[in-house]
Write a protein that binds this DNA or RNA. Sequence first.
DNA 1: ATCTTATTGTGATTAGAGGCACATGCGTGC
DNA 2: GCACGCATGTGCCTCTAATCACAATAAGAT
Lengths: 209, 209
Amino acid sequence: MKFLKIPAATITRLSLYTRALETLIKEQVTVVSSKRLAELCGVNPAQIRKDLAYFGQFGVRGVGYYVKELLFDIKKILGLHREWKLAIVGVGNLGCALVAHENFTRQGYRFVAAFDADPMKIGRKLVTGLLINPPNEMHNICRDKQVEMGVICTPAEFAQDIANRLVDAGVKAILNFAPTQIQAPDGIKVENVDFSVKLDNLAYYLTTG
Amino acid sequence: MKFLKIPAATITRLSLYTRALETLIKEQVTVVSSKRLAELCGVNPAQIRKDLAYFGQFGVRGVGYYVKELLFDIKKILGLHREWKLAIVGVGNLGCALVAHENFTRQGYRFVAAFDADPMKIGRKLVTGLLINPPNEMHNICRDKQVEMGVICTPAEFAQDIANRLVDAGVKAILNFAPTQIQAPDGIKVENVDFSVKLDNLAYYLTTG
DNA sequence: ATCTTATTGTGATTAGAGGCACATGCGTGC
DNA sequence: GCACGCATGTGCCTCTAATCACAATAAGAT
C-alpha cells in the first residue's frame, strides 16, 4: 500500500460494500471472500481487493474477510463511526420525506436544524419535532448547532443562494437535490442527487435500445 | 463523426446541458459558445464539443451554438421529445413527494399507475388523483397502461421482489430509490438514486479533508 | 474580394481506472 | 513438522475517457 490519490469511485464502492456487509451480518455470515462480496455488489473481485488495498490489509489469505471487522474498518475509513449533524433547507414534500427516511436514520446522520422560506411553515414543527426556521437565521443557528452538512431541497432557482448561505454559515459539505449545478468555493464538497439526469439516461436507453 | 460506442458519462452530461440551455432560454440568450456552456455545467469546453460530435455537427464555427436549436437536438437525442409513462411502487413519504416533484413534471415524465403493499393505502388516491393499487395487479395494470419505466420507493428489503414484478410486467427501465443493488436480466436498464452513498462520500470528505 | 477574428470539430496525447494473473502467505490435515 | 489448497495482495497490462492543440471555417470588417 502506497500513498496514492484515492479515486472517488473507490469511496462510492466502499459505501456499497458496507451495505452488503450489513446484510451479511443479518444473515449471520461471519467470513466472506472478495468473490462472494463482489457478486453481491455487482463488481469485480480484484476491484474490491484493490479498493481495500488503498487503506491497508484487512483480509486473511486463504480465508477471506471477517465480516464484522471489515465493516467496522470500512465505516471508520468513511467516517461513519461518529454522528454527523445536518440541516435541511426546503421542507416541502421531498424535504419532509428525507428527514424521516431510512437512508439518513440508518447511519449516524442526524438532522438538527430545518429551514424554509414559506412564512406559513416558519415556526411550525416537522413530524420529528424539528422546528422550521426562516433562511435568514441560517448563519446563527447552523453555527450554534454545529451543523456540518447541508441538504438542499428547494426549487432549482433558489439552490445557489441557499448554498451560498450554507457556506457562509460554516457548512463544509452539501447534498443537493435541486436539479441544477451549484458553484461552491474550494474546500466545500457538493454532491448532487440528480434523478432527473438518471431519468434522462433511462429515456435515452429506451430510445436507442 | 463515426459510429462509436457512446460513453454513459456523455449521456449524463447531455442531460446537464439541456438544463443549462433551458436556463439560457429563460434569460433570452440565443447563442452560446462551448466555453460559456462549459462554465455553466462545470466541465471542459472540448468535452462538450466531443460529446456533441458523437451525434453530428450542431454548431457554427466562429459563432457558437444556437441555444434553442441545440436544446431541441439534444432533447431529441435523449428521447425527451415524447412523453414517458411511469409507474411508482411504494407511496410512502418519499414516493408521494416524487410523484409531485418538478424533476418529473418538468419533462414529459408522467405517472400513470401507483402501487403499494399497505392495505390501508390500497384503493385510496394520491393528491394527483392517481389510484393506489395492490402489487399483485402490477402485471395487468402496467401492460394495460403501457408503463415503460418503473420507480421503486419501497424499503430496501422489498426492492428486488418489486423489480422482478416490474420486469415481469414488461417494464424495461427502473429507477431505484431503495438503498440496495438490484439484479435485473439483460435488456433491462436499472439506475440507482442513492443518496446514502452520496452522504457517505461527504462524510469521507469531511473526515479526511 | 481579402483579411481578421472567433469558435467549432477532431486527431493526437495524456491520464486514469479496471481487470488479469501470479506470487505471497495463512490455515488445515496428515 | 511438512505439504497442500485457497484466497488475498499487487505488479503489469489493457482499455476507456478526458484534455490538449491545431486545422477548418464562418461572419464581419476593411
